[in-house]
Simulated scan of single mutants.
Amino acid sequence: MSTPQPPIDPNRPSAARIYDVYLGGGHNFASDRAVAARAVELLPETPSVARANRAFLRRAVRYATARGIRQFLDLGSGIPAGDNVHQVARSTAEDCRVAYADIDPTAVLYTRHLLDGDPRTVVIQGDLQRPAMILHQPAVRDLLDLSRPVGILMLAVLHYLPDGPALDAAMDAYREAAPPGSVLAISHLTFGDDPALVDRVADLYNRTGTPLVPRDADRVGRFFEGWRLVEPGLVHSPRWRPDDGDEPVSDAAQRLTLAGVAER
C-alpha cells in the first residue's frame, strides 16, 4: 500500500517552495512567487544566497564522506534541486544512505517522487523540533544505523524556527543520538551590512505565516554546543572550504549566511 500524500495548500506560501523559486525550480505556486519577488526587491542578492547555500551543501557532504561517513539525516531537506545529498554523497561512495525529513508537504511529495524505487533513501514528513518522532520512525530506523557515525544536516532550516525550549531540547537530542565520529552541518541566515533590510525580509515572511529568524554568529554558534567545530569554524558560507568551481564572490558577507561543520 502506498503512503498517502500530505495535503498541499497552493494559496498559503511555503518556505520550501519560496526557496525553490530562488533556485529557479518549478515546484511552486503564485503565492510563493509573489513572496519571492518581494524578497528579491528588498534584497536582490537573495537568489545568489540560495545558490551559495547549495554550494555549501555539496562541500559539507563531501567533507563527511571523506571522513568515512556513509549515512546522512537531512533535516529540513526542502524540495529537490540539483545535487541532492544522496547524489553528492554517492559521487564519492556509492553505498551512502540518506534519510530526508521535512515538515512541508510539497517537499515530501516531490522528494518521494524523485526517490521512488531507491532502496538506500527514504523521505518522511516530520518536525525538526520533534526529534523522537523522526529518529524513531520505522523507515528511518530501518535505513540508518545510529550506532555508527552519521552526517546530520540542518541547512537553511533553523532560521525558520523561533528560539525556545523546544528548539534547544531538539538540538540536544540530535547531539545525543549521534555517535562519536558523526558530523553536524548548519547554515543559517544572518545580518549583513544593513540589518534593517534583513529585518524587512523577515517581516515579509512573518506576515505570510512563515516565521524567519535571522541570528548573529554568537547565537548560531550555540547550535554547535557539545560539538567541535572544524576549521575554518563558523564563517560566511562562501568561505567554508571553497572549491575552485564555486560561483565567484567578491564579498562573502553579502551571501548573508553563516555556515559551519562540527564533529562529535
Rank of each mutant, 00 (worst) to 15 (best):
D194G: 11
H188S: 14
A101N: 06
H136M: 10
E45S: 04
D203E: 06
P47E: 01
P13A: 03
G117E: 10
R33Y: 15
A166W: 15
D203C: 07
L167S: 08
D203R: 04
R54F: 03
H27D: 02
R222P: 00
H236R: 15
L42R: 00
G117H: 11
T111Q: 14
A34F: 03
F56E: 00
P13R: 06
L234S: 09
L73P: 00
G26M: 12
D32T: 00
R219S: 12
G25F: 10
H159E: 09
R70Y: 14
R207T: 08
S182P: 07
L204E: 00
V85L: 11
V157Y: 03
V213I: 14
T190G: 08
P179G: 12
P211T: 14
A253V: 14
L189D: 14
S250L: 11
Q5D: 13
D163V: 06
A252K: 14
L197Y: 13
I69Y: 10
A107N: 05
G25Y: 04
R67H: 11
V201F: 02
D145C: 09
A259C: 13
N84V: 06
P47Q: 01
V123Q: 09
A89D: 07
G82S: 13
D251A: 13
L158D: 07
I8W: 10
Y174K: 06
A66Y: 12
T46Y: 00
G78E: 02
A132I: 13
V220K: 08
I69L: 02
R62M: 05
D203L: 11
E231Q: 01
A177K: 09
R33W: 03
T65L: 09
I69K: 01
A132N: 12
G25N: 10
P7W: 02
P211N: 15
P195L: 04
G245T: 10
R38C: 01
R62G: 04
I186N: 06
E263P: 06
Q125K: 05
P138C: 08
T257I: 04
V220F: 09
G181R: 07
D145Q: 05
D145N: 03
D74P: 09
D83C: 13
V261K: 00
L146I: 10
L229C: 14
T92I: 05
G25P: 05
R222Q: 02
I69H: 00
L23V: 12
I69P: 01
G117N: 10
C96S: 04
P4D: 00
E45T: 10
P242W: 02
E176R: 15
E263H: 07
P149R: 08
L256Y: 05
L234A: 10
L161A: 08
D32V: 06
P179Q: 12
P138F: 15
D218G: 07
S91H: 04
